[in-house]
Design a protein around this nucleic acid. Structure first.
Lengths: 205, 205
DNA sequence: GTTAATGTTAACCTTTTGGTCAAGGTTCGA
DNA sequence: TCGAACCTTGACCAAAAGGTTAACATTAAC
């Protein structure tokens, strides 16, 4: 059984992290103020600093949690051997991530856009390894003539950028869509269209 | 013949705008300080404020110039009737923009990521119209069975995101590429690969 | 019930930063 | 050469913002 204090700590940290994610997504690291984060979390600013020594610590925590989600979402790529199923599942998963966690995607995009000061280490090690392994898988498909001979790196970049675009450039898409956010039904269609385009790009129709 | 003062003004504004673009790209609007912009431009801060009343005015100027470039780059789409040539030319043009003006692309991405406060009006009007017209062109191609029946909006979003990714996520690509920036020769190959993927996505091989 | 550890918060401090000012310099037409 | 317009810049100011403090409240262990 957990102590009350432990529960209080967990609940407060969760509230603060959720608030911070929203504010960082909206304003960027520098543009986000601890005051605003505190208000969003429904706590006084000093309380935020009690749980997180500095704004930068809080930012790192937010990114670390997003990183975790990112990694666990990436595992779906390995669940199928067949290129069509593997790619389709992966693209769907990434599209769903953009839909359900747009704030996470935006914080991530902002971090990389401004030089990946915090995530650089991850990109350089874990992600690099992950990508190399999957590139080999794709090369295998190409060798077996299961898909067209495309550049695997370029393919992954296209999948990442296209799917993340639906979160990071949400505002643009909404404006081009007449100011209305996509309904669940409309978004399902977007997913289908993206899947179709990606599969088409490697010759799977 | 131009007056000397006119030349001074033009030269200084250019210096300031160029510096501002760099600093906005690196730090975002809020993260950029006028002091830093001034230093980058090689001028005292007060001089920056002499030419641009506020930081926000300067930001708007930077975006306005980028907008101009964006629009004039977009015209290449209309130069050919044939889908293969039109798409290939457009994708190449966008890839070259990412290569030659990565800072512009980053400032743009940052602006939209954080809600398109300034560019909202443009997206909602000029870009929306531009897109609708080109969507009709693509629909024409589909009706004539020149390309696969894909969703034209999704196609444009994919082209935009994929090509801009090479500027906006430059840092990630470089890290995944072993820390080395792409040479001109390597980048040419990247362009080919992206063109191939995009053409493939609409069934042109 | 006493004590130690942890949580809460208003008030405060310090640094950063966008922006102003005033005094002096430069250009240029008359 | 004189004066008006424009350019230059160090010093300054007020507000914003990250972070600290100290006093008080609550919980938990004995």
């Amino acid at each position: 059984m957990k102590y009350q204090k432990e529960l209080v700590r967990e609940a407060n940290e969760r509230k603060i992290v959720a608030a911070a994610e929203l504010i960082f997504a909206q304003y960027g690291f520098k543009g986000a103020t601890t005051e605003r984060i505190a208000k969003q979390a429904g706590l006084p600013k000093a309380n935020v600093h009690y749980y997180f020594k500095t704004k930068f610590d809080l930012y790192r925590r937010v990114l670390a949690l997003i990183l975790e989600e990112w990694m666990s979402a990436a595992t779906v790529f390995d669940e199928y051997d067949d290129p069509r199923t593997a790619l389709e599942t992966y693209v769907r998963s990434k599209m769903m991530f953009s839909r359900s966690r747009p704030l996470a995607s935006k914080v991530w995009a902002n971090e990389i856009l401004h030089g990946a000061q915090v995530l650089g280490g991850f990109l350089d090690t874990t992600l690099k390894t992950w990508l190399q392994d999957r590139v080999h898988v794709v090369e295998g498909w190409i060798a077996q003539e299961k898909i067209k001979a495309v550049d695997p790196h370029a393919l992954f970049y296209m999948i990442w950028s296209t799917t993340q675009h639906y979160a990071d450039f949400e505002r643009q898409l909404v404006l081009l869509h007449g100011g209305q956010p996509f309904s669940d039904r409309e978004y399902e269609q977007k997913i289908e269209q993206v899947v179709e385009l990606i599969l088409g790009s490697v010759g799977l129709n």
